[in-house]
Design a protein around this nucleic acid. Structure first.
Lengths: 247, 247
DNA sequence: CAGTGGTCTAGACCACAGT
DNA sequence: CTGTGGTCTAGACCACTGC
């Protein structure tokens, strides 16, 4: 090995030093995709460590997506995949407060009824459902910030039936009820229709960012929401990093 | 332990069985946020395994974000964080082909010059730069699909100076040149201005989805791009899963 | 001080895939 | 057959932190 693997001296643990050294070679392009990485045996000699320590380092690099491993042929630098990124999905009250503005919300609509066929499809349900339909306007100061149109599956979350949503907006309340869930988001630009433009106090036809969110837990759809952000003022931020998980 | 930790029998390795068992308790809500999970010592007894195996399982759960650990107090179920999701960033040629349409692109503008002060700020550079400015229209069939306005830092990627971008569009070419990089994306809705609406063949003022992408490697800005998608037809998809990395 | 995590060792056996 | 990864063990020492 003449590549200067042992440069990194500042890290705390030996395996993180190994990770850092190899990561540096990969990210700098010194080791291009397909380049062979030292085997566990070679690493034990390079770093005077046990095989478990070398293994831990390489497994971590595999988890980060930087390395792929095959038996016999060894470990190699992976082909980079930039097609995914970490997207920050805004929590509306926090988002507003982060801008230094007072947050409040207004409940415009709140009704319990049976789901229409179109709504059953949205919620991926074959059987009839009782749902809660909610329309909530989120405000930053006195300015409309986001219009939320939500459907809650009452078979999945019966506790919502008698919830007034007076203190917490529906999104925040739901997190407190069902902490672990999956969520699918679809993001698109739309032109504000008449009703939306009036509520958000923007001109009709103005461009809006709309997030559609479908939340599930253990395969059951809990809630479906449209979040429409006023005008061109709102943006989402997403970041891709080759090593995007932990340190 | 009376919680049925040992239900999972189908997995291959012991540590993945431990991971699966604990994950099930957390995701189903049996173990709410803050709930104490067995210590490494307890897991060695529950599963008749060594401490290293128990450790590997818990460390993996920490990496997935399901568990937090503190010395002395032990390991606990983490507070869920739904504020991030995995976003699929489209590779334009693939995206078009995935819709079953023939892909091609047209180079509308291609000039080498020095960067303006505004552009230096975009590229986070304090010193003068030579840049390549490119405007490319991506087409699906004969329909305009996406308008790309890109700036390439020629100090960072001198190879781009003499590249004609005849075969590969700039985005795809850059990936082949600099495989490992970070990318920041800002997503917003905009109204098409006159020039954009003409190129994309949409009505002026129509809502467009615009992705702004800044790409860096080892702290140096390589390229900045605006990707403007025609009308309301395009959407991005993002997914949050509690255990979103590997198995 | 005692419990817990954080790290590491020096072995071991097996599975798999090239040669 | 042999090199590589995949997994596991039964210890060990230390660091931190809450009591």
């Amino acid at each position: 090995m003449t590549t200067g693997l042992n440069d990194n001296v500042a890290k705390k643990s030996l395996h993180s030093r190994i990770i850092g050294d190899i990561e540096k070679e990969i990210l700098s392009g010194q080791w291009p995709p397909g380049h062979k990485i030292p085997s566990e045996q070679e690493l034990t000699e390079l770093y005077s460590c046990s095989r478990m320590t070398a293994n831990k380092a390489i497994v971590e690099l595999v988890n980060r997506g930087l390395v792929i491993r095959r038996r016999k042929t060894g470990s190699h630098v992976a082909q980079p995949r930039i097609q995914t990124a970490i997207l920050e999905i805004p929590d509306i009250p926090n988002d507003v407060k982060a801008r230094g503005l007072p947050y409040r919300f207004e409940k415009l609509h709140h009704i319990k009824r049976t789901a229409t066929p179109a709504e059953l499809e949205l919620l991926e349900s074959a059987s009839p459902l009782h749902v809660l339909e909610l329309t909530v306007l989120h405000l930053a100061g006195n300015q409309p910030f986001c219009l939320e149109n939500r459907l809650i599956n009452l078979e999945a979350i019966p506790e919502a039936t008698d919830e007034a949503f007076a203190v917490l907006p529906p999104g925040s309340w739901l997190i407190s009820q069902v902490p672990w869930k999956t969520a699918q988001h679809r993001i698109r630009a739309t032109s504000a229709d008449k009703s939306t433009s009036e509520i958000l106090q923007i001109t009709q036809g103005a461009a809006c960012l709309r997030i559609e969110r479908l939340t599930k837990n253990m395969g059951v759809c809990l809630t479906h929401a449209y979040l429409t952000y006023s005008g061109e003022n709102h943006e989402l931020f997403a970041e891709f990093e080759p090593s995007y998980i932990r340190s």
